[in-house]
Design a binder for these strands. Structure first.
Length: 826
RNA sequence: GCGAAAGUGGCGGAAUUGGUAGACGCGCUGGACUUAGGAUCCAGUCCCGAUUUAUCGGGGUAGGGGUUCAAAUCCCCUCUUUCGCACCA
């Protein structure tokens, strides 16, 4: 017989809603705990990854509630974005219609699983009341000079006439129409996240974050110290700045390479005999897929410009080349090349027969030009470097910095790998960028009181191959806020990462129509105490959100430095060792599992299968095991409830009782301790659930009946009554039901967590393991307060031990209190 | 290539501080109940070898070496896997 999970789950979901258990406010004077899971993109159905993520969060939420916190656990939807737009195109519908339909479906699923959300705070980022504040924040950033427009090269599909993200142009072909992707120069809006690079590099104000994520962010930001050196263009006053981290190699610089996009390229080629060839080369390279072009194993290619630069340290003329391996958006887009000491330059110089000059000798001074098969990139002894000769190259670096700054040929600089964030998308389903172009006034930001700039609805999505907003003439044509003359609106929309960069703050005050959120209300809830989501967001969403938070702090809206105190990155749900995906045909539909076994079973399985940070391998049999576990509990309570209700609740704690009864009581208190610590200190739910299973085994093995003594009945009752409590974070519906069956007043979440009694964890006998020369040879049981000397004496007189040590010399006896005796003999 | 993490039975995993390796669950084997079992319950289940079979010995945490009375745990080398970065000057 299966326990009636359907009725039970429906019943308690209704009661929780009636009691408004998960709705919180600022007036409530319990301490706050803000728990947030990354909100989903509304695809219409929850997948196993969501269930896993949200089950982890819900377990923590319920545990915290029982420990006296008011837990803010909100839920919403990341509604905008290309997948939603494409989904609508496929269904020949409109994204607004399909997105809100999908949200409806997902809300239904969330409620059927019984997650403890404050539904009063629900919103979607595509709600007009939400995205207007995207625009407001954008304008604040604009005011602060953090927003600018520049043209940059992007992946462009000539057939679809749209910008593609890197992952949509992976092999150089459009994911949708298989057209070869080209690089196109497009005007785009950028946000100066690099202004915050230094602060984003500081992770010291965070609580518990996975080291992995911190390292990934550090690498992504990629700080490097170096110097910008000014080279002069020969026969001109033009200066070409070049960034290097190796000024110690400057005397070995034998040529210079510019990126194809470098502004100087156009100037240099004019009047040059190479002009035509340069044009051909530059056009070819510029149109190549940028990811492929800048991959390490792509062959280096270049072309001579016919012009020269002057190496400022020795006045030598060096040829200026243009090359495919130099990127425009790092440093200055120009590099000084030292082929002897840089592998890329070495390969390039070999290919094009450019001079190579050793300026750093290895420690044996045996480096010879003719024998070099690769660049010598290590430290060494300075040579061919005039006054620096003979110094250790590492020591020379600082001296050269100083020397160059004194001579005004360079400035010490810090460079970051992090680039400014391009937020323009030539797509419909996103937040309109609140900018107006006026022929007279130029670029004019939309005044605050004219927000929101509404996304027009009467746009035929997918019917055009250009940015759909361009076809909405009612939208595009407007009047200039400054001069009142005719003007045009910006038709690009925002990257959806903009939306998700501050949603955690909106949840604090989701209905506010005067501000993104009230700063005092937000101060009450922020920062998020525990954030939970996938590691794939390490360098995107999590970095953007940290940046936003610092910006919001700088404009006085929040008062902390970091948005998320603790971060938990949960693993994926896999099947047959691979991430579930339609193309691999290994998707398991959570709805089917929930219909068959119930929400509690799915939660227990997910949490029990592995620790939260690790991947969970889906296993049909494992789900049955989880279901079996819950059934065993149900049967136990059903059979014993009358007996239990009639059993006494109190007993004399100091009474002498049998060993088996002592063991049961030990199991009870030990399990409370184990489960509490596993959740609180370690967030390791698999071992917590294992401990409950073990305890259940102990309880069912203990036979009771009407003839038992009162004290037996009382200890047995206690051992059963902790089960609903310990189960409440993981299988909430069943926990409530059996809690009620045992004669308690609902809800269990209003009843508080349980504590254990240290007294019952003390065993009156201690088992000592006896090792002889490192091997376990015997075990002895001694009284609790047996002294070290006594334990040693008992161990040495143990029959088995004696047979081993007879006639041997005892060299050493080590006693680890409460644990073991280690005897060393020869 | 660089960086990080990990590697434990047939499987998922446990061992929290260097102290009884394999908790808990799945699967499997045997048994009970049964018209039936894909339900439930009971027993067994790391490998090898003995045996008096409710016993004993040996081996064992990717492989090799080391530190220690004692290593899955600490150190060194090798291999494998996963993840991240990848011409960043």
């Amino acid at each position: 017989m299966e326990y009636p999970f359907k009725e039970i789950e429906r019943k308690w979901q209704k009661i929780w809603e009636q009691k408004r258990l998960f709705y919180v406010n600022e007036q409530d004077n319990r301490p706050k705990y803000y728990l947030l899971s990354m909100f989903p993109y509304p695809s219409g159905t929850l997948h196993m990854g969501h269930i896993s993520n949200y089950s982890i969060a819900d377990a923590i939420a319920r545990f915290k509630i029982m420990n006296g916190y008011k837990v803010l656990q909100p839920m919403g939807y990341d509604g905008f974005g290309m997948p939603a737009e494409n989904c609508a195109i496929e269904q020949n519908s409109h994204p607004k219609i399909t997105t809100y339909q999908n949200i409806e479906k997902m809300r239904g699923q969330f409620k059927a699983i019984g997650f403890g959300y404050d539904w009063d705070r629900e919103f979607a980022t595509c709600d007009e009341e939400y995205y207007r504040w995207n625009q407001w924040i954008f304008l604040k950033m604009y005011e602060k000079g953090l927003v600018y427009k520049k043209s940059s090269f992007v992946n462009w599909c000539p057939h679809c006439k749209t910008v593609l993200a890197n992952e949509q142009a992976e092999n150089g072909y459009c994911w949708r129409c298989d057209t070869k992707v080209i690089q196109k120069e497009v005007e785009q809006w950028f946000i100066k996240i690099t202004d915050y690079a230094e602060e984003l590099l500081d992770h010291s104000k965070l609580g518990k974050w996975p080291q992995r994520v911190i390292t990934m962010q550090k690498n992504w930001i990629g700080k490097s110290y170096g110097i910008e050196i000014f080279f002069k263009l020969a026969g001109s006053d033009e200066t070409i700045p070049v960034f290097t981290t190796r000024p110690d190699t400057i005397f070995g610089c034998t040529y210079m390479v510019l990126a194809v996009e470098h502004p100087l390229v156009k100037k240099l080629k004019i009047g040059s005999q190479y002009e035509e060839e340069i044009d051909k080369f530059v056009n070819r390279i510029i149109n190549e897929n940028k990811i492929l072009r800048t991959a390490k194993d792509t062959e280096k290619e270049g072309i001579f410009t016919g012009k020269y630069a002057i190496n400022p340290v020795n006045g030598k003329k060096i040829p200026i080349w243009i090359g495919n391996y130099v990127v425009m958006d790092y440093g200055s887009g120009a590099v000084m090349c030292v082929p002897a000491h840089d592998q890329r330059d070495f390969e390039f110089a070999k290919k094009y027969n450019l001079p190579i000059r050793i300026v750093i000798q290895n420690w044996d001074k045996t480096l010879k030009l003719k024998e070099m098969k690769e660049a010598y990139i290590d430290d060494g002894i300075m040579s061919n470097s005039e006054q620096f000769d003979g110094m250790k190259s590492r020591d020379a670096i600082d001296m050269i910095y100083e020397w160059m700054e004194q001579k005004n040929i360079g400035i010490k600089t810090v460079n970051y790998h992090l680039r400014d964030w391009g937020i323009s998308r030539q797509r419909y389903w996103g937040t309109p960028i609140p900018i107006i172009y006026c022929d007279k006034c130029g670029v004019v930001p939309v005044p605050e009181n004219q927000l929101p700039v509404k996304l027009p609805e009467n746009v035929q999505v997918g019917k055009t191959t250009q940015n759909p907003l361009k076809t909405a003439s009612d939208f595009v044509n407007t009047t200039c806020p400054k001069c009142g003359g005719p003007a045009k609106r910006e038709t690009d929309t925002m990257d959806t990462f903009f939306d998700s960069s501050w949603y955690y703050a909106r949840f604090c005050d989701p209905k506010n129509d005067k501000m993104p959120f009230d700063k005092d209300i937000a101060a009450h809830w922020l920062p998020v105490d525990q954030y939970i989501g996938g590691i794939e967001h390490a360098c995107m969403h999590l970095l953007y959100a940290r940046f936003f938070h610092k910006f919001l702090r700088d404009i006085g809206l929040v008062f902390t430095d970091e948005p998320f105190t603790n971060l938990l990155t949960q693993g994926m749900v896999t099947k047959d060792g691979a991430k579930m995906s339609k193309s691999k045909h290994n998707v398991v539909d959570p709805q089917y599992i929930i219909d068959r076994y119930g929400s509690d079973t799915v939660r227990i399985f997910m949490l029990f299968a592995s620790p939260p940070e690790k991947d969970v391998e889906w296993n049909d049999e494992g789900v049955k095991g989880a279901f079996r576990f819950l059934n065993r509990i149900w049967i136990l309570i059903s059979e014993k409830k009358d007996f239990l209700i009639n059993s006494p609740t109190n007993y004399n704690e100091d009474a002498e009782i049998s060993q088996s009864l002592k063991n049961l009581r030990y199991s009870t208190h030990h399990t409370i301790k184990k489960v509490t610590e596993d959740i609180e200190d370690r967030m390791q739910f698999n071992t917590a659930i294992a401990a409950i299973m073990e305890h259940l085994n102990n309880v069912t093995a203990f036979k009771v009946d009407e003839n038992c003594s009162d004290i037996e009945k009382a200890i047995y009752r206690e051992s059963v009554e902790i089960i609903p409590k310990l189960l409440s974070p993981f299988a909430p519906h069943l926990a409530e039901e059996i809690w009620e069956m045992l004669g308690n007043k609902p809800s269990i979440y209003e009843s508080g967590w349980i504590s254990y009694n240290e007294k019952f964890l003390i065993k009156d006998e201690i088992l000592y393991v006896i090792q002889i020369n490192g091997k376990i040879r015997s075990k002895i049981t001694v009284g609790l307060n047996t002294s070290k000397e006594e334990v040693e004496k008992l161990a040495l007189s143990d029959k088995k031990v004696r047979s081993y040590i007879e006639g041997k010399e005892i060299k050493k006896v080590i006693i680890v209190p409460q644990k073991l005796v280690s005897i060393v003999i020869n």
